[in-house]
């Protein structure tokens, strides 16, 4: 059984990391990062089977691909706090010569990253390729991916969604961060996408909703269920209902903090709402 207290403490610390990283360089994407903190903590602490150390091929372990690369702060924080690289390195986020580029990349050799992302809509195809490589290698581990809901407006996703079910890529769990926000407003204002469940189901996927995407117990329970649905001939889609900016009251339920850093006062306010648990970097 997962120790919920420990995971909650880690999630709080990750939220602190996110806003401190973004504040320091006055740039980056806190909103989506905060909304996915519970998901990343669950994935790296509870759900994925990973080997010690890091190698690009990742044979014999579960893999994760972040398609909406702009939420790099949460990715970097959880990777660091899961032992992929020193937590102090979070200090270098977006600075010149850093391995922690604005958007994740393999180019600087940061352990834990297997593909560059940032230009949207490409991650699912990559995850499918990695999943098919696992099948060729008789490696029964899983491939996870995360996508923004607004990101699904990119057409390449639908090529990938069509392909994954047609080719029975059933070792893949693609999660959609359903926060219903994108840069210019709510997804319904910018480009309504209708029922994503109906769309994924029509494309032949097994679909599962996690209604409380910011409740760590609900996320773990839902993702474990998703895991149990793999290997049955269909790819699995998780619709993760989250709140953008979760955990910092003035950042919640709005697209305003998609790509905006807090000022000094806002940082202090946000940190006060998330008291230090495991120690700041």
């Amino acid at each position: 059984m997962p120790n919920i207290k420990e995971l909650t403490d880690l999630t709080t610390q990750v939220r602190r990391d996110i806003i401190r990283m973004v504040h320091k360089v006055n740039s980056g994407h806190p909103g989506g990062s905060l909304g996915c903190a519970e998901f990343f903590v669950s994935l790296y602490q509870e759900l994925m089977e990973t080997k010690d150390g890091f190698d690009m091929d990742g044979i014999g372990e579960d893999l994760f691909f972040l398609s909406n690369g702009h939420i790099s702060p949460v990715y970097y924080s959880v990777l660091a706090r899961s032992g992929y690289f020193p937590v102090e390195e979070l200090n270098t986020f977006r600075l010149i010569n850093t391995r922690l580029q604005g958007h994740p990349t393999t180019h600087e050799g940061l352990p834990g990253i297997r593909i560059a992302s940032g230009s949207l809509g490409q991650g699912m195809s990559v995850a499918i390729g990695a999943a098919q490589a696992k099948k060729l290698n008789n490696d029964d581990h899983l491939v996870y991916s995360l996508h923004g809901d607004g990101e699904l407006q990119e057409g390449q996703n639908w090529e990938a969604i069509m392909y994954a079910s047609a080719k029975k890529v059933d070792n893949l769990i693609s999660t959609v961060d359903l926060n219903q926000q994108q840069i210019d407003g709510s997804t319904d204002d910018v480009l309504p996408m209708g029922s994503l469940r109906a769309k994924f189901e029509a494309f032949g996927w097994t679909v599962l909703d996690i209604e409380k995407g910011n409740d760590i117990e609900a996320v773990i329970k839902g993702m474990k269920e998703a895991k149990s649905l793999t290997g049955k001939g269909k790819p699995v889609c998780v619709l993760l209902h989250t709140v953008m900016g979760n955990g910092i009251d003035f950042m919640m339920h709005t697209h305003a903090w998609h790509g905006k850093a807090p000022n000094d006062e806002q940082l202090a306010n946000g940190l006060a709402q998330n008291p230090e648990t495991l120690g700041d970097y």
Binding site: M56, D57, G58, I59, L63, F65, R114, I115, Q122, G123, M124, S125, V126, A127, I128, G129, A130, A131, Q132, A133, K134, L136, N137, D139, G155, Q156, E159, A160, M162, Y163, A166, K167
Partner: peptide, 24 residues
């Protein structure tokens, strides 16, 4: 060892990138 992608070249390039992860 052959993957028929269909008329979806963007997806093909992404899948190819993914296949390299695993040594292909």
């Amino acid at each position: 060892r052959f993957f028929q992608i269909g008329i979806a070249e963007a997806n093909m390039m992404g899948i190819a990138a993914g296949l390299t992860i695993g040594g292909k």
